[in-house]
């Protein structure tokens, strides 16, 4: 029995030759158990070695194989090819400048990511002899979901605000800021507040919820951002009533 064939319409862009991205069609044999990434790898290995794409772990951990599959941002190593019909359209992630073919420019994300100070901030540092900072299971559960982010950028590709508002810090970075703000070991919420409540911060999110819809790890960045909005509001109200007790 011959292998099933599918047609892939892949966006191509060569910065040396093309002025705008173009589409190229590939018809390849596919296996029933394949993920979308397997098909892209097959095209690269067997059909057209000039195709550029990113991938690494093939098990939804590294977050590098995010692409737009039939118009929706997907982690291609986690997306079954059998979910799609005979024609599958593969494009680079939306909202990002395209470096080449399916590879997008991620530097701007790193800039936004660093803005929210995604690390534990403390004034006091325990002596090494005192051992690690301890955290209970309950305290961990508060932040666990938001710490599962693999920075795959699907949320940035799906968020309409990112494409409309270049200042918007974006879902993954804001969710991570919330993760650190809620961390029982962290004392940096005040330092992050100006960023989170300022231009491009949480209030620039218009709750499209697309980030949570496409998140392959169920991080639910949209809810993290709404919580930060609420906490920002509480902070403002506390400051309004009693300026000295404005801290989180």
């Amino acid at each position: 029995m011959g292998a099933q064939k599918k047609t892939f319409i892949v966006t191509r862009f060569d910065p040396d030759k093309d002025s705008v991205p173009r589409k190229e069609k590939y018809e390849i044999p596919v296996e029933p158990h394949w993920k979308v990434l397997d098909a892209v790898n097959y095209i690269k290995d067997e059909v057209d070695s000039t195709l550029s794409h990113r991938c690494s772990c093939r098990m939804a951990v590294c977050g590098s194989c995010g692409m737009s599959v039939n118009g929706e941002a997907k982690l291609t190593c986690k997306t079954a090819l059998s979910d799609y019909g005979d024609t599958v359209e593969i494009a680079p992630l939306a909202n990002f400048p395209i470096v080449r073919d399916l590879v997008v420019e991620l530097e701007a994300f790193i800039e936004k990511f660093q803005k929210v100070k995604p690390w534990i901030i403390r004034d006091d540092v325990n002596d090494i002899a005192a051992g690690p900072y301890k955290q209970s299971v309950e305290e961990l559960n508060v932040i666990k979901q938001f710490s599962m982010c693999i920075n795959c950028m699907l949320c940035y590709a799906a968020c309409p605000q990112i494409g409309l508002n270049p200042d918007f810090i974006g879902p993954a970075a804001l969710a991570l800021a919330h993760r650190y703000n809620e961390d029982s070991r962290d004392r940096g919420a005040d330092e992050r507040r100006d960023i989170l409540l300022g231009v491009g911060g949480t209030y620039d999110c218009t709750f499209a919820n697309e980030c949570s819809e496409v998140c392959p790890k169920d991080v639910d960045p949209a809810i993290a951002i709404q919580r930060e909005k609420f906490l920002g509001l509480i902070h403002w109200a506390r400051n309004f009533v009693s300026p000295k007790k404005g801290g989180r």
Partner: peptide
């Protein structure tokens, strides 16, 4: 999309194609 969407502040090493909105917008 906005041509400045997700464009790094530091100069880019290669010419890039401008970003597009998510498919199906709006």
């Amino acid at each position: 999309a906005n041509p400045q969407a997700m464009v790094p502040k530091a100069p880019q090493k290669t010419r890039t194609a401008p970003p597009t909105m998510p498919q199906g917008w709006w």
